[in-house]
Computed example of a mutant assay.
Amino acid sequence: MNVTELLESASLLVPQEVATENDISVRDVWDYLVHDEWETALHLLEELGDTPPLPLAFWEQLAQAAAQLGLQRSTAWCHWRCSEIRNGLIRADLTLRPTTEARRTTPIPGHGVLRPMWDIGNLSPTGGASVSIAGLWVEDMPLLQPGGRATVRLIPLTPAHWAHVRTGRQITMHEDRTVAGTAVVLEVRLPTPSVSTT
């Protein structure tokens, strides 16, 4: 499918009554599609994707459209949203340790390339702490500086490891044996069995 067909198909998956906080609806998307303003239509559809959460096909079509338009960050974001549907999502308020207290001296990239380890309370067979891996996307920021704080989205590599995690729980981030940051869980969305990778 070409960009127009992909965006039209994705827009058909958005309920007509859905609108963003700024009162943007799927009708606005169609106005932009009529005038071949694909990039704007794509960004509006990304905004509509959270109200309510839309199916995997929606994000797959947006990812293909973004790739055809050469929009790298949008492509990465749409692929990320596909992974959230498959593996689940943990949103958390993360505070990184400052450079004086941690090994990291450079900012964390915000667009989902980092996959740190997390101590979420699991134990190894010998009774020691066992870490679990989750990809990290920083909301509304391209980078998170050492010592900085932001809301992050985590995609568990093994969703079953995270089944006990609940809102309000404190978890710790590790890039090596030392603590790189601490986070408080804000939201947990477990994957549905039909799309889970485990």
Rank of each mutant, 00 (worst) to 15 (best):
V14C: 04
H164L: 10
G121S: 10
D176C: 14
P125G: 03
P109D: 15
A66M: 03
M1S: 03
V165I: 15
P98V: 00
L136V: 15
S25V: 09
E101Y: 11
R177C: 03
I120V: 13
C78N: 14
T51L: 06
E5G: 07
R169G: 00
L69M: 11
P125V: 02
R86I: 01
S25C: 11
A63Q: 13
E101A: 15
W162G: 06
V113Q: 07
A67L: 10
L33D: 14
C82Y: 06
P142V: 11
A92W: 10
S130W: 03
I24S: 00
P107Y: 12
A76G: 04
E139I: 05
G148M: 01
G70H: 08
C78M: 08
R73Q: 08
V18M: 07
R91T: 14
Q72A: 05
L157D: 07
D176V: 09
P15N: 08
T182P: 01
A67M: 10
S132H: 01
L33K: 15
A66W: 09
S194I: 01
D140W: 05
S124R: 14
D50F: 11
S194C: 02
T40W: 05
A92Q: 12
Q64F: 04
R103G: 14
E5V: 06
V195C: 03
S83K: 12
G70Y: 09
P15Q: 11
N87F: 07
T99E: 13
R27P: 00
S83F: 00
Y32K: 06
R97Q: 10
V26N: 10
F58A: 07
L123T: 13
I24F: 01
A63N: 07
E84Q: 14
A19V: 14
T4W: 15
G135P: 02
I24L: 08
L89C: 10
S11P: 11
V18L: 03
P107N: 13
S196I: 06
S194K: 00
P53C: 06
A102H: 00
A183R: 06
A76L: 07
L69C: 10
E46P: 00
A183P: 04
S83W: 09
S196H: 04
W30M: 13
G121P: 08
I155T: 15
T95K: 11
A63V: 01
Q145R: 06
F58R: 06
A65L: 10
A134L: 07
D176Y: 12
Q170D: 04
E187F: 08
L13M: 06
I120N: 05
A150F: 02
